[in-house]
């Protein structure tokens, strides 16, 4: 009789669906997630969804206006813009998610370690991070590309390196707040090990701002990557990539605006989606719901 009542009671009363929604960032977050999932589906299903091959050149359709078969028109080589935009999400989303995950994998442990241990460890780690932060982001990316050569993967790596110090700093500052909480001191007094305190108390309570930051950084990653490609430093033609397409369309903006507008919209939608998620998460990570 004594063994179970604690575990059993109270499970029923919850509204789990509602809790999940709040956790994902409320209405805003849900909208963001929906768009992101659609975009991911689009990227994966691009070969099925795309009406034409992204690299098929059609001499008759150079800079042709949108029609029923080519709803986004055609570019300067007569390639179907819609198909290229659909394919372009593969690179853009891949780089956005990949670079942030990589930056988190490196930055999160640094931030947690520095913030939790404090003292000299914190001081030294943070000065190193500052060092990295003191380079202008684009310069850092360009010098890395100068060394390794241009390409999508190098762009991903460059963006990740730019993001590591940002991630580490955000995590550290929220760890500092959590570390000072009475429940952390109490857990210590109740005999919990540092490892279990970090895992059980510090990480869950400090991760919020980092996740918010992550979603915002994903949005920026898309823009940075597009900028690098625009400058010819990211993905190389003929890869369908949003930044590259912008660079292309730039030349024909007055004659064939669709070559420019649709990749631009593509960037805008994905950035919007990540920002929505970020805003929603920011709200839901405030456990007392003050901002709601």
């Amino acid at each position: 009789m004594t063994a179970h009542p604690v575990a059993e009671v109270g499970k029923a009363a919850r509204a789990p669906r509602r809790r999940l929604r709040t956790r994902l960032g409320g209405r805003e977050g849900l909208a963001g997630w929906t768009i992101v999932f659609i975009l991911i589906a689009v990227a994966i299903l691009a070969p099925i969804l795309a009406p034409h091959s992204p690299e098929a050149i059609d001499g008759n359709r150079i800079l042709a206006a949108p029609t029923a078969t080519h709803p986004f028109g055609s570019d300067d080589l007569g390639r179907d813009v819609l198909s290229r935009v659909l394919y372009a999400y593969r690179v853009s989303l891949g780089i956005a998610v990949g670079s942030v995950l990589l930056a988190m994998a490196v930055g999160l442990p640094i931030g947690v370690f520095a913030g939790y241990v404090g003292g000299w460890t914190d001081l030294i780690l943070m000065r190193l991070i500052d060092l990295l932060l003191s380079f202008p982001a684009l310069l850092l990316a360009i010098s890395l590309i100068a060394i390794l050569g241009p390409g999508s993967l190098v762009a991903l790596l460059a963006i990740a390196i730019i993001y590591v110090p940002i991630m580490a700093r955000v995590v550290r500052s929220s760890v500092l707040v959590v570390r000072g909480q009475a429940y952390v001191r109490g857990a210590r007094a109740r005999g919990a090990s540092h490892l279990s305190i970090v895992r059980g108390h510090v990480l869950p309570n400090a991760i919020g701002p980092a996740l918010v930051q992550a979603s915002v950084l994903m949005a920026f990653a898309i823009v940075i990557e597009a900028a690098l490609s625009f400058l010819g430093l990211g993905s190389q033609p003929p890869t369908p990539e949003l930044g590259l397409m912008l660079a292309d369309g730039n030349n024909y903006l007055t004659q064939a605006p669709w070559v420019e507008i649709f990749p631009g919209l593509g960037i805008a939608i994905s950035v919007l989606a990540f920002n929505l998620i970020g805003d929603g998460l920011r709200r839901s990570f405030d456990p007392n719901g003050i901002t709601r």
């Binding site: 575990a7 009475a182 005999g191 059980g200 309570n205 456990p287 007392n288």
Partner: peptide, 20 residues
């Protein structure tokens, strides 16, 4: 502030038992 806002109270009470 002395209770972790993310932990159900049974987990908080259990923490020292798990730790030792």
């Amino acid at each position: 502030s002395s209770l972790d806002p993310r932990w159900p109270i049974e987990t908080t009470i259990r923490e020292p038992l798990d730790a030792y």
